[in-house]
Design a protein around this nucleic acid. Structure first.
Length: 347
DNA sequence: GAGACGTGGGC
DNA sequence: TGCCCAAGTCT
């Protein structure tokens, strides 16, 4: 990799980006706060999924101070359906850290950004380069894919050591004049042209003249990713308890899966469910369809029912309107929430 | 380093 | 249906 080749590669890449960059909400006005919010939302999440959440979030919480003072329930509701809920919890922590340590502003250097909750190597590089024009790499899945093909690097891209290796290599390539455009351009190429599996659009790729993988016909074999483990299956028994026009909700544990979100009463074993039901004065039970929800590392196989009760019980009984407006419920419960709504219509 | 941590879309 | 994935981070 001689410098002279890199220079031409960078030039071709930036020219392509200038002509082909998508118009995205967070690109139009790249303030540090907007860039930060967008980068966190975009972690492991598609652009199309992020768009509506981004606008709503920025409108509800326009700056770091607003975020630092927002309640956890408000934040979970703004994040409802986006997944990886620890992201928004960490953003609030980071906002408070900014108030305490950085005068209420986002810091501008890679190391300072890296010190904040929820900001790792990628996000620190992305924010430092895009919002503050610092010449640091932002190595995400796109960058790993694109350059493992361009340079034919066969290291497992899931390994931390591989990411470090690419970070170091890219330090030598990233242009001091336009680090923001460079990092976004590589990601854009990865998302639009140098796409995963056997479908890269090399015939329209500005990097093709510089791409060793393309020239040697090994693009489809890159990047190398180690195999994943099998998901475990968990059975869940769901009781949607209804008293008059209110629904019983439980809040999940503060840590772990779907931390702090709300759910209908959920049990791991039928015996537990039976015990719970035996404490209620039941008017009638309406079975709902079985449902399956797939997480990254596990599956929930759920069976559920509506349980109408005659006698009020202690617990979090909320109206349908309150549920919709204030309580964040995981997508895993979608089928049962819909079953509930269908029944409430008939009442 | 390995595993936890969501969701919805594409083929 | 099932598997891969999408702008990762934390423990």
């Amino acid at each position: 990799m001689e410098k002279i080749n890199n220079k031409q590669l960078v030039e071709d890449l930036l020219a392509w980006y200038d002509a082909n960059a998508r118009i995205l909400p967070w690109r139009e006005e790249a303030t540090p706060y907007r860039v930060w919010v967008s980068e966190i939302m975009l972690q492991q999440t598609r652009v199309e999924a992020v768009k509506p959440y981004f606008e709503r979030f920025i409108h509800a919480l326009p700056d770091i101070s607003a975020l630092a003072h927002a309640s956890e329930d408000t934040l979970r509701k703004l994040w409802e359906g986006l997944g990886y809920y620890h992201r928004v919890s960490n953003m609030k922590k980071a906002a408070i850290q900014c108030m305490e340590r950085f005068n209420g502003q986002l810091p501008s250097t890679y190391d300072e950004l890296l010190s904040l909750s929820g900001i790792g190597a990628y996000s620190a590089g992305a924010i430092a380069s895009i919002a503050f024009h610092q010449p640091v790499p932002a190595v995400d899945g796109n960058v790993l894919r694109v350059f493992s093909r361009v340079w034919v690097i066969e290291d497992d891209i899931l390994k931390e050591s591989t990411k470090k290796k690419f970070q170091k290599l890219l330090m030598e390539v990233i242009p001091k004049e336009r680090p923001d455009a460079f990092n976004q351009a590589v990601m854009e190429i990865g998302a639009m042209v140098c796409v995963p599996n056997a479908a890269p659009k090399c015939h329209i790729c500005p990097l093709a003249p510089h791409c060793k993988g393309y020239q040697t016909g090994v693009t489809h074999k890159l990047p190398v990713k180690a195999g994943k483990k099998k998901r475990t299956i968990e059975k869940k028994y769901i009781d949607v308890v209804v008293y008059e026009d209110k629904i019983l909700l439980q809040q999940r544990e503060k840590d772990g899966l779907l931390a702090g979100l709300y759910e209908f009463n959920t049990f791991d074993y039928p015996q537990e469910e039976e015990l719970f039901l035996s404490t209620l004065d039941i008017e009638k039970i309406v079975p709902l369809k079985d449902s399956k929800h797939i997480f990254t590392h596990k599956e929930w196989h759920m069976s559920g029912k509506l349980v109408f009760i005659r006698k009020k019980i202690k617990g979090n009984l909320v109206s349908m309107q309150d549920l919709e407006e204030h309580y964040a419920i995981p997508s895993a419960y979608k089928a049962y929430k819909e079953g509930l709504i269908e029944w409430m219509k008939h009442m």
